[in-house]
Amino acid sequence: TEYKLVVVGAGGVGKSALTIQLIQNHFVDEYDPTIEDSYRKQVVIDGETCLLDILDTAGQEEYSAMRDQYMRTGEGFLCVFAINNTKSFEDIHQYREQIKRVKDSDDVPMVLVGNKCDLAARTVESRQAQDLARSYGIPYIETSAKTRQGVEDAFYTLVREIRQH
């Protein structure tokens, strides 16, 4: 089974770092803004072998026109913010609204991801993020692309959301 996953969120929150940590098991430290990259990885989730087709997208506003296209083809979405960047957390709402509009559905598989949880300088409390996820009816997972904490959990949870859909 193949799953088309799309990673969305503001610029600099760590979308590529999360994806590369999942696929290649290493942490990319330097920031190089993405336009669009796709990665494929075969994994076993709950005993089922599946192929993850992951689209890593641009957070930069100037590429926002490309969003409709990949939102149409994606089956599930990782909505990523950084726990030390309140603005990126506030941006999640717009991504969710755009996904709902493009998919013409209120019920699209999504996982809210709070990345950079290895950093002490948190400005978005776990509780705020949990409340937001609960209001959307989606899971919330904290990750660190640096330490790998929660990385597999985030992507695998999204696959489970798609399966249950």
Rank of each mutant, 00 (worst) to 15 (best):
N115L: 15
G150D: 14
I141N: 04
V80Y: 02
P109C: 08
I99T: 03
L158N: 00
R134G: 05
D46P: 04
A17T: 05
V124H: 09
K4P: 05
A129W: 11
D56M: 00
R148P: 12
S135W: 10
R72D: 11
P109S: 05
Y63P: 14
T57G: 04
Y136W: 09
L112D: 02
L22C: 14
I23T: 06
D32C: 03
Y136C: 10
A145R: 01
D46I: 10
S144K: 07
A10T: 07
Q149W: 05
T34K: 01
G114H: 02
V159E: 03
F155G: 02
D32F: 00
L55Y: 04
N115G: 10
L18C: 07
P109T: 06
E90D: 13
T57P: 02
D91A: 15
Q149E: 11
L5E: 01
L112Q: 03
L22R: 11
M110K: 02
Y39E: 00
I141E: 05
M71S: 07
P139N: 06
E97Y: 05
D91V: 14
T34F: 02
C117K: 07
S16Q: 01
C79G: 03
T157S: 09
V44Y: 10
A65G: 14
A120G: 12
T147D: 15
K41A: 14
Y70P: 08
L119F: 14
E36G: 01
F155N: 01
K41C: 09
T123R: 08
G114D: 01
D107P: 10
F81S: 03
F27T: 02
P139L: 06
Y140V: 08
E36P: 00
V113C: 08
G9Q: 01
D53V: 01
E97K: 12
G150N: 09
T73G: 13
V159W: 10
Y70K: 05
E75I: 12
A65D: 09
L52V: 14
I54R: 00
M110E: 01
E48K: 07
Y156P: 04
Q42V: 08
N85K: 10
T19L: 09
G114K: 01
S105D: 06
A10R: 07
I138H: 05
I23D: 04
I23G: 15
K103W: 09
L78T: 01
F81Y: 11
G47S: 07
T19E: 02
T19F: 00
D104G: 14
A121G: 11
L55A: 05
D107V: 12
T157G: 05
T157F: 10
D37H: 00
H93P: 12
E62Y: 15
K100Y: 05
Q128I: 13
L78N: 02
I92P: 02
E97G: 05
Q60Y: 15
T73Y: 11
R67F: 14
V124S: 11
E97F: 03
K15G: 01
V28T: 07
V28W: 13
S126M: 08
E48L: 05
V80G: 02
V44I: 10
Q98H: 13
R101N: 10
I162F: 07
F27L: 03
